[in-house]
């Protein structure tokens, strides 16, 4: 029983759809009048210029209520942050106006000091004492 109910419901819906579709097809095929169904079940008739509108054969049509599909709001794309190029820490050596650029000489590496032995001065020996005629 249950199986039957599940299958018959879609078939029933299809039958309703086809019947409504058939009705509209028939109305359109007459090409004399256009019917617009509003939710207030009021029918407004638009008569073409060279045609006279009549309401005699019009039946009220109820629109189908349905679930309004929710508007899916896509999240705004997160902008990719541009890569930030940091300036060099070293300022460019821009010479001042009217001043020639000072070219600093490349420092010569100081050689390691060589400790030379300090020569010890040899003291001149004292003259030998002599007694003599002066």
């Amino acid at each position: 029983m249950k199986k039957f109910k599940i299958i018959s419901l879609p078939i029933l819906l299809l039958a309703v759809v086809f019947s409504i579709g058939g009705y509209y097809w028939g109305a359109l095929s007459q090409r004399s009048k256009v019917y617009i169904i509003t939710r207030n079940d009021q029918v407004s008739t638009t008569t073409p210029t060279n045609q006279v509108a009549t309401t005699t054969n019009v039946k009220p049509v109820t629109s189908v209520s349905g679930v309004v599909a929710p508007v899916v709001t896509k999240p705004a794309p997160v902008p990719t942050a541009p890569s930030i190029v940091k300036p060099s820490a070293t300022k460019p050596n821009i010479p001042a106006v009217n001043q020639p650029a000072t070219v600093k000489p490349t420092p010569t590496p100081t050689p390691a000091p060589v400790v030379m032995p300090v020569p010890v001065p040899t003291p001149t020996p004292a003259p030998a004492p002599t007694t003599k005629v002066s």
């Binding site: 030998a128 004492p129 002599t130 007694t131 003599k132 005629v133």
Partner: peptide
Amino acid sequence: QIGVQNPLKP
């Protein structure tokens, strides 16, 4: 030691 001058060979 005090040297004594030789007067012939100063």
